[in-house]
Amino acid sequence: MKILVCISKTPDTTAKIAFTDNNTKFASEGIQWIINPYDEWYSLVKAIELKEADPSIIIHLITVGLADTEPIIRKALALGGEEAIRVNADSHDSFFIASQIAAIAKEGQYDLVFTGKETIDYNGSSIGGMVAELLNLPYVSLATSFSLEGNNATMIREIEAGEETNKVQLPLVVSCQKGMAEQRIPNMKGIMGARSKPLKVVEPVAAESYTSISAFELPPVKAGVKLVSPDTPEELVRLLHEEAKVF
C-alpha cells in the first residue's frame, strides 16, 4: 500500500498580507512560511496514523515548488514519510499543479492520494478533484475521518449542514480536513531523521496553465467600530434595524 501526501507551503496564518510590483506580487519579504495547515495536521498525520497501524504502508510526500520549498518539505518529513519528491516548478495554476501530482501518482502507482482541504493562501480547494479526474479515480472531498479495511476505505465527509459516510474501493483521492487526525509536533528523532531521508527533485511534465493572476487587491479599510454603551443594549438593536438595515 502506497500513500502520496500532497504538501504545499503557505505564509504563516498570522502573516501580514501585502503586495509589491504594482500589486502583482505577494510581498514575501520577512514572511514566515509554514506547511499548509490542512496538509500537515490532517492529511500527513492521518497517513502516519495509517502507517502506525500497518507498518507495511509506504508514505511519500510531494510538493510542486522551487528549491525554497525544501525547508517546508523537510519539516514535513520530520513528522513522517519515507521520502519526498519535489517537482521543480513554480505555478499558481491549479491545473498545472494537479497535472504534476497526477503524473507522479500514476508513475508511482499510489493507492491513495491525500490532499488538504485547500491552501490557505490561494484558496482553490481544486487540486484534489483535478488530480482525481486526471487519474479517473473517485474523489472524496472534505473528509473528517478515514479508515481502511484491506482495499476498502470508509470515510465521513462534510456536506452542507451535516455529514455522510462514504465507502470506496482504492485507489482513491481524498481531501482532508479537521477531524481526520490530531495535530502533532515533530520530535528530535524525527527532525534528525528527516535530514537523511531522500528528497528527489524531478522536472515538471509538460502541462497547460489555464489561469494567471493579473493583480491583487486589499479589501477597503473599515471605517471603525461604532460603540454602544452596555447600559443601553437596545440602542444596538435600533442601529442594526434602522441604520445597518440587516434585519
Partner: peptide, 23 residues
Amino acid sequence: NNFSGKAIAPRLSVRLKAGLVAG
C-alpha cells in the same frame, strides 16, 4: 462555491480543459 461545487467543478475543469476560478 459550496460543497457540491467544490467537488464537481475541479473535475469538470480537467474534462473540458477549462480554466477554473474558485470562489
